[in-house]
Nucleic acid binder design. Structure first.
Length: 971
RNA sequence: GCCGGAGUGGUGGAACUGGUAGACACGCGGCACUUAGGAUGCCGUGCUUCGGCGUGGGGGUUCGAGUCCCCCCUCUGGCACCA
């Protein structure tokens, strides 16, 4: 240590890093100016010749456990990218807020009585320290927190906008498409003027309706509405949750409690009105295909037809049974129908009295009459939870209703069943069953001995006893007025739909899996709804002037929770206990004067705050608007050119230029945020149609975890590794052998690795470099603490190339860069730029190491070379780069220095190594001038002794790819 | 079951439109400097019976395949009775 007092050690890194972090903070060098408003600096904005860029991360929830080394991965990546683009002359905005509402703080509050705000603020302090130590170049003036009233005031404001609007399917959008949100006042005006008729053929005029009746009509159009509907109720959690938050084994994502379908009055968001736009606009953004696919899948748009089936023997005017099918071409093969047990038409279908003559005994469920059978089946089905339904797998159950319908294509009478494999929530809740082409229907037909008619010719070798879902010509599909036989599926579908329309039996239609978004939660720690109910139970939005509706203090933070399996329990939100807050007298400014109201006691889900935070970052000090129009348009307005890979003719939707976060939010946050953005766009509050024009999902860092012989995780930091005689690693914990696996970092696997430890042992720059060097950003990869030293060694060599370790003096020389080094330098610049552009940080680091190693081999490093590598390293390891830059004699931070530019003339080599292959195998190499002609190269290659030897019998062909390759093929 | 993604040295990973497989790093081995080194520097490191063989396995296209096509295996993500 004594002889190398100025070595780049962890201690020195610590000093340098803390010093530069202070300097950055004091100078506000990462503060990005706005064109107008509170952070306005129009001159500075105009001074950026490279334009502007908004780079964001999915913001963190401040957990009590602090960060682990997996968390910063995305933040480092966005920081490197941002710093690089600042050096390209752009006004880069990179900032990070806190997703401060959430369940953990509330659960802690329930246990300890400590206010969630206190817990959350304490956690934020810890997290901010850890993040600051990482050296992120953030605009800290914009570090918004969702729990602050000044923030959630605008969350509530957006809710009011959504509540006060409706989706007009006929309205024309600026892009010419149909359908957009409009203020609810315009709908009311239409009703008042009579321009719009009342629903359900009600012929009264608007003024004839009572206030409650009007509210009912209006509420049925609102984009946010309270309704009594089947929702996911988790008694153990004490709250309802959204469809997206239910795992596929029927449990709540939070807390893993059983979830039951219950009819409860809850707030919903009419996201289904946006199904098409949410699906279509995925083409306009640059996202991982995987995530787009997940969203498309979740929206679940399928094109098909509605077909009406008349019930046989029903009195005139009886409603037909409507089915949805994606395969109208198979209608000739529909041999029975199935309704969901809850289908509203079931009651009217079931005939009184005995089973029809000749009813197959297996269809009756063992009951004496259709009515008894249907009642019993429906009861059994209603008692089954989703989990139980799933456990039954594909075993088909059901009963005959006793009624028949007429197949419109064939006129055949087909039996109508109810069965729980048909879901009320999708399509029309009724299907035409086509066993020939549908596996599920085939199974059902097997169980109930129903006929099967193939209407598509199966491919050869297709098993006789299976449905055929593949492509083929139609068969058995003709009647007096329609002949589909021989047509391929697509053609047959179109022909059938035309026929159905002509005959009045049906029409083409589209069905979606997406359901409306359940938006209320029975929790304390969330945004209160800006909603009050009058004495008639009608919901009113409070005037904007009353915002924010602040979260009141409560004696008890917990919702009432129940036995997790008590499906019959009722939610009870904590806010309901604060009577003086709930019961208010207000003048809503609607002309009714002061009235008695009850406040909504549910709170908004955690997603609310994160649906729009990307907008608030832009203008966080604006107290008059969510974001000013000019500022919004400057940062996220549509760009001239669409994103890469967009279909021809696409208009850019605008949005965040780079958004990085975990793929676990693919159908939650990322879908909800898109929905809110589109509503705000429709209502004219933003110019961008998408929140995130480019989204990148980073992989996870997995850390080794160890289990003992009982399978219990043991503390990973206490495990010792030894290499056995067979060369394989063995692991022991307190003397006992344990097995290693790689998994998510956290408490449950006892494999926590804290960035604090890495700062102490190596410094932040080394940690940053290691995390960025591990591999492609989108891949998950294993953490290996002992490999970090490689990153440290690189920085030490870089340091040593500039600073004398013994004296601390700068040791670069003021001499020109020699030609060979210059060529390496420019090739490095070229490659590093390309890598940085594409988030290829791992390969950029490899190039920088190579160049640095080349400098190490020189007797002395020319100043210009040192400066160039320092600038190139700066985005990745900003502290050491700033320190070296300053020691090299620059007074200013390098934040806005120009990134090195490669000279194209220096990218081409004078001579290159040419590979000489014989029959495709490398046999020799020759140095040739890089501008060698094909003929000359061919001659040179053919003259080589090895080639002469191999071609003694003659030459068949010679492939020349000058200057790098010659392939000789002998006869 | 359906739809994606991925299989490259002991390890993490490189390889632009088909054209020198294994960049860079860890680990490992050797040497130097050292009282010592787990510091630093330098050298080596896919396997090999030294003919060759090598990018999960098998076939194909091509002068030439990690890269393109077909079949199969394994791992992994999402959806899951969605009509």
């Amino acid at each position: 240590m004594s002889e190398t007092a100025h070595r780049y050690t962890a201690e020195l890194a610590d000093q340098i890093e803390l010093a530069w972090q202070d300097r950055w903070e004091e100078s506000g060098v990462f503060n990005a100016p706005n064109p107008s408003g509170p952070f306005a600096d129009p001159e500075k904005v105009a001074s950026y010749d490279g334009g502007h860029m908004l780079v964001l991360d999915m913001f963190p929830y401040p957990s009590g456990a602090g960060l682990h080394v997996g968390h910063p991965l995305g933040y480092i990546a966005t920081d490197v990218f941002s710093r690089y683009h600042r050096m390209l002359g752009k006004n880069v905005l990179h900032c990070l807020g806190m997703d401060a509402f959430g369940l953990p703080a509330e659960q802690y509050a329930v246990q300890t009585g400590q206010h969630p705000r206190v817990t959350t603020e304490a956690n934020i302090v810890i997290m901010k320290r850890q993040l600051r130590r990482l050296g992120l170049g953030l605009d800290n003036r914009r570090a918004i927190r969702t729990m602050d009233p000044e923030y959630y005031r605008w969350t509530q404001w957006i809710f009011l906008k959504i509540f006060n609007s409706w989706y007009d399917r006929e309205a024309v959008r600026p892009d010419g498409g149909l359908g957009r949100a409009r203020p609810i006042t315009e709908l009311i005006a239409d009703f008042e003027s009579g321009a719009r008729a009342l629903p359900d053929g009600d012929e009264r005029s608007w003024s004839d309706l009572s206030a409650v009746e009007r509210a009912e009509v209006i509420d049925s159009h609102r984009l946010a509405y309270a309704s009594e509907a089947p929702v996911n109720w988790a008694p153990g959690l004490g709250s309802v949750v959204a469809n997206e938050e239910v795992t596929n084994d029927g449990r709540s994502e939070r807390g893993n409690f059983p979830v039951f379908k219950r009819n409860l009055r809850q707030w919903m968001m009419r996201i289904t009105d946006y199904s098409d736009r949410l699906a279509d606009d995925l083409d306009r953004v640059e996202w991982p295909e995987k995530v787009k696919a997940m969203q498309r899948n979740w929206i679940g748009r399928s094109h098909g037809a509605r077909v009406a089936f008349q019930v046989v023997g029903a009195p005139d005017g009886t409603e037909p049974i409507e089915v949805f099918t994606t395969r109208p071409d198979t209608l000739f093969g529909a041999t029975f129908m199935v309704l969901a047990p809850e289908h509203p038409l079931v009651d009217s279908l079931v005939p009184q009295g005995e089973w029809p003559a000749g009813t197959n005994p297996t269809w009756t469920g063992g009951e004496a009459t259709p009515e008894a059978s249907v009642t019993a089946y429906r009861l059994a089905a209603s008692r089954k939870s989703d989990v139980e339904r799933q456990m039954e797998g594909k075993d088909k159950t059901g009963v005959f209703t006793g009624a028949y319908a007429s197949n419109p294509a064939t006129g055949t009478e087909i039996p109508i069943f109810i069965a729980d494999y048909v879901l009320m929530g999708y399509g029309t809740g009724a299907i035409m069953a086509v066993p020939g082409q549908d596996e599920r229907d085939w199974h059902f037909a097997d169980v109930f001995d129903l006929p099967k008619i193939r209407t598509v010719q199966p491919t050869e070798g297709h098993p006789e006893d299976e449905a055929f879902g593949g492509e083929g010509p139609a068969i058995n599909s003709a009647n007096d007025t329609l002949d589909l036989n021989g047509k391929p599926i697509a053609e047959a579908k179109a022909a059938m739909i035309d026929w159905l329309v002509a005959q009045g039996f049906g029409e083409a239609t589209v069905s979606y899996k997406l359901r409306d978004w359940l938006f209320s939660r029975q929790r304390y720690w969330g945004e209160p709804f800006p909603i009050v109910f009058d004495t008639d139970g009608v919901a009113h939005g409070v005037p904007e002037s009353m915002l924010p509706i602040e979260l009141p203090e409560v004696p008890d933070y917990s919702p009432r929770t129940f036995d997790p399996n008590d499906a019959a329990s009722e939610p009870e939100p904590p806010l309901g206990r604060v009577r003086e807050w709930v019961e208010v007298e207000l003048d809503l400014g609607d002309g009714r004067g002061v009235q008695k109201y009850r406040r909504e006691t549910n709170t908004m889900p955690n997603w609310a705050g994160s649906c729009w935070y990307h907008l608030r970052y832009l203008d966080p000090e604006n107290h008059d608007e969510l974001v000013s129009a000019a500022t919004e348009e400057y940062w996220v307005g549509p760009r001239e050119t669409p994103v890469a890979g967009a279909p021809a003719g696409t208009r850019d939707p605008g949005g965040v230029d780079l958004y990085i976060g975990g793929v676990e939010h693919a159908v939650l946050h990322l879908l909800y945020a898109r929905f809110w953005q589109k509503v705000l766009f429709d209502l004219g509050h933003v110019s961008s149609e998408e929140p995130f024009r480019t989204y990148f999902s980073q992989g996870y860092i997995q850390a080794p975890a160890y289990r003992d012989d009982r399978g219990q995780p043991v503390e990973a930091s206490e495990v010792e590794e030894s290499v056995g005689e067979d060369g394989q690693s063995a692991f022991t914990w307190r003397g006992q052998p344990v097995t290693r696996e790689f998994g998510k970092i956290g408490k449950s696997l006892k494999n926590m690795v804290s960035p604090d430890d890495m700062y102490a042992a190596y410094g932040a720059d080394t940690l940053r470099l290691y995390e960025m060097g591990m591999g492609p950003l989108d891949q998950s990869k294993p953490w290996d603490t002992r490999a970090i030293v490689g990153s440290q060694r690189f920085l030490q060599r870089l340091w040593r190339n500039v600073v004398d370790e013994e004296t601390g003096e700068v040791r670069v020389v003021d001499e020109p860069i020699d030609d060979a080094t210059s060529r390496i330098l420019h090739r490095t610049i070229d490659a590093v730029r390309r890598d940085y552009d594409e988030l290829g940080f791992n390969t950029a680091i490899a190039r920088l190491i190579e160049f640095n190693n080349a400098l190490t081999k020189l007797d002395a490093v020319p100043r210009a070379a040192a400066e160039q590598i320092v600038l190139m390293v700066a985005p990745l390891a900003p502290h050491i780069a700033e320190e070296l830059w300053s020691r090299l004699g620059h007074a200013e931070s390098l934040t806005h220095e120009d990134f090195p530019v490669a000279d194209p003339a220096l990218l081409v080599e004078d001579s290159v190594t040419c590979v000489v292959q014989i029959k495709g195998k490398v046999r020799d190499r020759i140095e040739v001038p890089s501008d060698i002609s094909e003929d000359e190269l061919r001659e040179k290659a053919l003259a080589l002794p090895k080639v002469v030897e191999a071609t003694a019998g003659g030459v068949r062909t010679v492939i020349v790819r000058a200057p790098k390759l010659v392939n000789v093929v002998p006869l």
